[in-house]
Design a binder for these strands. Structure first.
Lengths: 136, 136
DNA sequence: CATCATGCAACATATAAAGTTACATGAAAC
DNA sequence: GTTTCATGTAACTTTATATGTTGCATGATG
């Protein structure tokens, strides 16, 4: 979006990412609520960037998207009655917490501007090779 | 299992964990293949421990169980055509790798003997309170 | 040889993520 | 004003995955 002026409709974005407009709206809603993008209805409406890309990190995006689960395992239940589960939780809670904290810290080190710069480099070499323009 | 002598049938274990005997067999199969437990068919058969619990860590168990996914996110595709995805992967691959390594290292610090000791403590206080004996 | 237990393949169920449809709301063009 | 276009949102459907289940073969014991 930063590489092209103007606003983008959910439908345009959906086509670029090979998905559905409603899925785009669902995801963008979180970003809009935190002010990273703006949405306009009606003619000429759509989505526009509304933040300094060098100030917003992947951590901010992660939070805007509702802090989805980072770890595939971890406590199944907060206060398990099973004593074995309690013992395992006691032994690993710290580890899971540390792993999450590590990931969040790293997310915080990556700004959208950095991703944009890297993407532009990749776009440059793409033009020389004629690759697809689709996103995932 | 370490707290009680003899062998345990899949059915017994399944009842204790409120699941199905076949599920028990599926999980135990990985542990058996690495020699941590033994299985016997027929009369008086079932599962027995076959390892030094102070030598086997949760990391060993994790590997025996087929290294199931640890992180809920991460690269969806190894070599994505999407350049945005490529840029994000490049920025976060190291972070995901480090988080996994951290978890594995911590798993490696916890032996089954430690869990057993902790469990026995918990069982002790349980008897004073009359809690359930079920596992999860 | 009857019984009991694991081994394993095939099928069924449950859950969550992603995708889809339908319609309401609001903004711009005519 | 009313037609068109775009988002907002709820409800539903599809898909993928993990878990649970059934059925039967294999082997060991009494």
């Amino acid at each position: 979006m930063a590489n092209q002026p103007g606003s983008f409709t959910s439908e345009t974005l959906a086509k670029a990412m090979d998905t559905n407009p409603v899925v785009i709206r669902r995801i963008m809603a979180g970003l809009r609520d935190l002010g990273y993008v703006r949405s306009e209805k009606g003619h000429g409406g759509g989505w526009t960037l509304a933040c300094d890309l060098s100030k917003v990190t992947l951590r901010d995006v992660y939070i805007a998207l509702g802090r989805p689960t980072l770890l595939a395992m971890g406590n199944r239940t907060e206060a398990p009655g099973c004593l074995v589960e309690q013992a395992v939780n006691a032994a690993l809670d710290q580890a899971f917490g540390d792993a999450e904290a590590l990931l969040l810290a790293r997310f915080g080190e990556v700004t959208l501007a950095m991703l944009g710069d890297d993407l532009r480099k990749r776009l440059g070499s793409r033009k020389l090779q004629g690759m697809s323009t689709h996103h995932a």
